[in-house]
Amino acid sequence: MKRILVIGGSRYFGKTPVTRARGAGDAVTVLNRGSGAPPPGVGRLVADRDDEEALRVAPGPRLRSRRRLAARAIAETPCADG
């Protein structure tokens, strides 16, 4: 089992890799602004990727102290308008 952090991942084309990784038995967490819920069985952190302070505190002290969020892979799934 891999630990995967996906930036975005709850809407548009980000849902597919998140759902597939979870279906393969990987522990998946999405980090987004909170605009969309992740698929069932997927963890969630809320922060804006452009806000350094929000990224620093998003995991909370419990996850940071135990290194439980130590991801083996990180993927970003941006979607831009225009």
Rank of each mutant, 00 (worst) to 15 (best):
M1S: 15
M1G: 15
R3P: 04
L5M: 10
L5E: 01
V6A: 06
S10T: 04
R11Y: 05
R11E: 06
F13N: 09
F13T: 09
K15W: 04
K15Y: 03
T16F: 14
P17A: 06
V18A: 08
V18M: 10
T19E: 13
R20C: 14
R20H: 14
A21D: 05
A21H: 05
R22F: 02
R22S: 03
A24V: 03
G25T: 07
D26E: 15
D26C: 14
A27I: 08
V28A: 01
T29R: 02
T29W: 01
V30Q: 06
V30G: 04
N32C: 05
R33K: 11
R33W: 02
G34T: 01
S35T: 07
G36N: 07
G36Y: 04
G36L: 04
A37I: 00
P38M: 01
P39I: 00
P40S: 07
P40I: 06
P40Q: 09
G41A: 04
G41Y: 03
V42T: 10
G43Q: 01
R44P: 00
L45S: 01
L45C: 04
D48C: 01
D50W: 05
D51R: 05
E52R: 15
E52D: 15
E52Y: 11
A54I: 07
L55I: 06
R56N: 09
R56W: 10
R56H: 12
V57F: 07
A58D: 03
G60L: 08
G60S: 13
P61R: 06
R62Y: 10
L63D: 00
R64S: 14
R64P: 10
S65E: 15
R66S: 15
R66G: 14
R67S: 15
R68C: 07
R68N: 06
R68K: 10
R68T: 07
L69F: 06
A70K: 08
A70V: 10
A71F: 05
A71L: 09
R72K: 08
R72P: 01
A75M: 04
A75V: 04
E76M: 10
C79T: 14
D81Q: 11
G82L: 11
G82V: 10
G82T: 08
